[in-house]
Design a binder for these strands. Structure first.
Lengths: 125, 125
DNA sequence: AGACTAACTTGCATTTTGCAAGTCACTAAC
DNA sequence: GTTAGTGACTTGCAAAATGCAAGTTAGTCT
């Protein structure tokens, strides 16, 4: 499943996936190692739970993350990045670098984030 | 003038500037050399004119673009990138690279875009 | 039985977006 | 010298997305 594309421009098309206030924040959070719904819901940015549920559903539908049950009774899930999702890392790094250069008083990115490569963030297929 | 920040995370903060469907599309368009309102309004993605006017106003308020009159009677404007706006180039390149790798049938990015550096896109200060 | 937790869903108000049309200041054509 | 056109917007209104609080379901813990 794919979004509706406004054009075939690769920049605009990527924004048809990520062009909203929350999708990349959720991806950043999973990349940072939070895998359970409640852990993701607890981010400092205070995402509304209906928005989080919607973004997780869309990210899974688009193939950027996958969801696996980690227990039964009751069934609970763990989210993780696919290769397609981990490949968003350079976008996140570029965003963070821009903020570091142009927005005062931001948190310093950890080395694992700055120097990381997509392959480091998804389990070997 | 700055947006309201949801947190001090550099990724989330960049998205407080760019996290919507249109801001980066407008920036891409100006970077590609379209400088007048009507030229920007004519992009294939069909941006609504109220949204375009709003994004230009915000981008100027945030210091990413500047607006200079290029004629009087009637007064008309030319938009161009500031250093802060041109520094968004790596974000656009990362988005385009992601699409090239993961979305079928996108347009191929021109070499000036793929190999460009921010300094190439704003008039020497 | 009663309290708690994880993972969501529902309802409703506010905000943002999309779409069409209108405005204002000129310029050029008939 | 009315009519048509262009550039840069603004306005009005419907539709979609977001924010906030509360509710639900299926369990576990004491």
């Amino acid at each position: 499943m794919l979004p509706e594309f406004r054009s075939q421009c690769p920049v605009a098309s990527a924004l048809d996936f990520f062009g909203d206030r929350w999708t990349l924040v959720v991806l950043r959070t999973i990349l940072a190692g939070r895998r359970r719904y409640s852990e993701i819901a607890a981010i400092p940015e205070k995402i509304a739970t209906n928005v989080l549920a919607d973004r997780l559903e869309r990210l899974e539908a688009y193939g950027l993350i996958s969801k696996a049950p980690y227990q039964t009774n009751p069934r609970r899930y763990r989210y993780s990045l696919t290769a397609k999702g981990a490949d968003v890392l350079p976008v996140l790094q570029a965003l963070a670098a821009w903020s570091a250069a142009h927005v005062p008083d931001r948190w310093t990115s950890p080395a694992w984030f700055v120097d990381g490569r997509p392959r480091d963030f998804y389990p070997a297929a």
